[in-house]
């Protein structure tokens, strides 16, 4: 019963809001002619809709605009984000991390002995994995080195930009 009422209200609200598809509008209009329950509910919801439309906006204090304008006199409009966010850098960072994850996965799966028969269980004991082997590996060292170089490169770019802006402003 409640579900029926909820469905009826939902359909009627769509009709009142004007968001119902054309076929649905015709169906609801027919129901409003034939069905007293639908008609009564429609009248009720229409009243609520009118009440909501008649609700009033709240007014802030009279000094509101003055306060905002006083605050913004001390501020500057920030440059549009598109002017200082380089999409190529974001894509580059994304690509780097994807490569890193793929590298680790390939290396990890390369360590698994697939020929060993162990049913459906994992073919090695996770508790006995020697993690020092992974972090003393030359591949890992290369990845770490790339990471550090990339970090230094980005830091250099950031400082160079900052220096340039400082010079421009002064």
């Amino acid at each position: 019963m409640e579900a029926h009422l909820d469905n009826m209200e939902e359909r009627l609200w769509s009709y009142i809001d004007g968001t119902a598809p054309r076929a649905e509008v015709s169906a609801i209009e027919q129901l409003l002619i034939d069905n007293a329950e639908w008609k009564a509910k429609y009248g009720e919801l229409l009243e609520v809709n009118e009440l909501l439309r008649s609700s009033e906006l709240e007014e802030p204090s009279l000094r509101f605009t003055k306060n905002v304008m006083e605050e913004i006199t001390r501020l500057h409009i920030a440059p549009a984000t598109s002017t200082y966010i380089n999409k190529r850098i974001i894509w580059g960072i994304g690509l780097f991390f994807i490569t890193l994850v793929i590298g680790f996965l390939v290396y990890g799966f390369g360590q698994v002995n697939w020929s060993e028969k162990g049913g459906t269980s994992i073919p090695f004991d996770l508790g006995k994995v020697d993690y020092t082997r992974f972090f003393n590996n030359s591949y890992v060292n290369v990845f770490m080195m790339i990471n550090v170089i990339l970090g230094l490169f980005l830091l250099d770019r950031y400082l160079a930009n900052k220096r340039r802006k400082f010079r421009e402003e002064s």
């Binding site: 509101f64 306060n67 905002v68 913004i72 501020l75 409009i77 920030a78 440059p79 549009a80 598109s82």
Partner: peptide, 15 residues
């Protein structure tokens, strides 16, 4: 909060 909204909007207007 409303004042803060207008100040933030001003700062970000170029966006």
């Amino acid at each position: 909060v409303a004042q803060d909204v207008f100040i933030k909007a001003y700062r970000a207007l170029a966006d």
